[in-house]
Amino acid sequence: MDIKDIIKPENFVYGKSKVLTDTVMHYCPGCSHGVVHKILAEVIEEMGIQDKTIGISPVGCAVFAYKYIDIDWQQAAHGRAPALATATKRLYPDKYVVAYQGDGDLASIGTAEIMHACNRGENIVVIFINNAIYGMTGGQMAPTTLLGMKTATTPYGRRADLNGYPLKITELIAQLEGTCYVTRQSVQNPGSVRKAKKAIRKAFENSALKKGTSFVEIVSTCNSNWKMTPVKANKWMEENMFPFYPLGDIKDR
């Protein structure tokens, strides 16, 4: 069979979501942000809530998320996305509010905001991209950086006596009464992408059921700042990140 006979509209299986804009993403080649944007857009498209969703973009690489996903967006100050999401959700209780944050944003400068938003049980969705490094500013150590991991500010590797221990913020958040769904996923292969998409969909459904805060951590790569190729970074993540940040649901009620 000729390829031209296969490439026809009736044989269409999978393509770009309509909720994504045509703007070329500024992310580095192979960046996990692109995959997470894609599955977030697919969930919004499948649930038919494009005009009912408000996104809160963080400070970090995902600061330009409003250019790529065609929903309403607000831009929060560094780490303050959960605070802005709280305000937005309380003003518009019928809308779906999703805060999209990285690890430097959520686990460092924004720890107070995320802890209290989750403890109050705001009916929002929080997507937390954990790549164990500050991506946009040039690869400095983040609270989530693994012990021994080399970054711009820990050139000989992170040391527990000098830099403290990596922060498992998702486990901390699971302790709070206000959260209903806390999970950790990844997006390095087709199976994990589908699981992560299911988790995000469940988080949105919990938001509609007013069950509390849903928190989805995505263990990600930052191949540019890890100084690896995208494929090697995915492998490194599987070998080094997953033992410390095990995947799966931490809390589901």
Binding site: G34, Q188, P190, V193
Partner: peptide
């Protein structure tokens, strides 16, 4: 690009993992 187009089964794995959503997949039963 498709280097070996005869091998393709249209599983869509490539498009699922693509960070920039540049791949569109088509499939037929034979």
């Amino acid at each position: 690009y498709m280097e070996n187009p005869d091998n393709c089964t249209g599983c869509g794995n490539c498009a699922t993992v693509c960070p920039d959503s540049v791949i569109t997949v088509y499939r037929v039963k034979i």
